[in-house]
Simulated scan of single mutants.
Amino acid sequence: MKPFTFDQIPIMMNKIHDKLDYLEKLIARISTVEENKEELLNIKEASKLLNLSVSTIYSKVCKREIPFNKQGKRIYFYRHELMKWIKSGRVKTYFEIEDDIVKRSKI
């Protein structure tokens, strides 16, 4: 780092302040994501998140098609598990399938 002049101090302080502000926002966003990871949902909240009826959710629980937790007679869901479950059903595009075939043929 090269030395700076006395006249450059206000500019450098502004840069430091901007970087600090950016880091604080980044940390806040990361901690929010971590909190959401452990967010526990009841069946009505899961129904709203998945845009499915409560009876459909119960049906999927009975068939063990959806990740859930049971404590006594109550059923709970972790938001991150439901999101992972949704993502697991993603259908690949034709381009992705072709790309997989090309990669496998190179092995």
Rank of each mutant, 00 (worst) to 15 (best):
M1G: 14
K2I: 07
K2E: 08
P3A: 10
P3M: 05
F4W: 06
T5A: 08
T5K: 05
F6I: 01
F6D: 08
I11W: 02
M12D: 01
M13D: 03
N14F: 07
N14T: 10
N14V: 06
K15Q: 14
D18Y: 09
L20V: 10
L20K: 11
D21R: 08
Y22D: 09
E24P: 00
K25T: 10
K25E: 09
L26C: 10
L26P: 00
I27L: 09
I27D: 09
R29E: 15
I30Y: 11
V33M: 15
E34W: 07
E35Q: 12
N36T: 07
E38V: 04
E38K: 08
N42P: 05
I43A: 01
I43E: 03
E45R: 04
E45Y: 03
A46L: 05
A46W: 02
A46M: 05
S47H: 08
K48C: 06
K48N: 11
K48A: 07
L49W: 11
L49A: 05
N51G: 11
L52C: 06
S53A: 08
T56P: 00
I57S: 01
I57V: 15
Y58W: 11
Y58A: 03
S59V: 08
S59E: 09
S59F: 06
S59R: 13
V61W: 03
C62L: 08
K63V: 00
K63H: 12
I66W: 00
F68H: 10
G72N: 10
K73H: 09
K73L: 05
R74W: 05
I75E: 01
I75H: 00
Y76M: 08
Y78G: 00
Y78A: 04
H80N: 12
H80T: 04
E81D: 11
E81Q: 11
L82T: 02
K84Y: 02
W85R: 06
K87S: 12
S88V: 00
S88M: 07
S88Q: 11
S88T: 02
G89P: 04
G89I: 00
R90G: 10
K92G: 05
K92R: 10
Y94W: 03
Y94F: 08
F95T: 10
E96L: 06
E98K: 13
D99W: 09
D100H: 07
D100F: 10
I101P: 01
K103W: 09
K103E: 15
K103I: 10
R104E: 13
S105W: 14
S105C: 13
K106W: 07
I107G: 15
I107D: 15
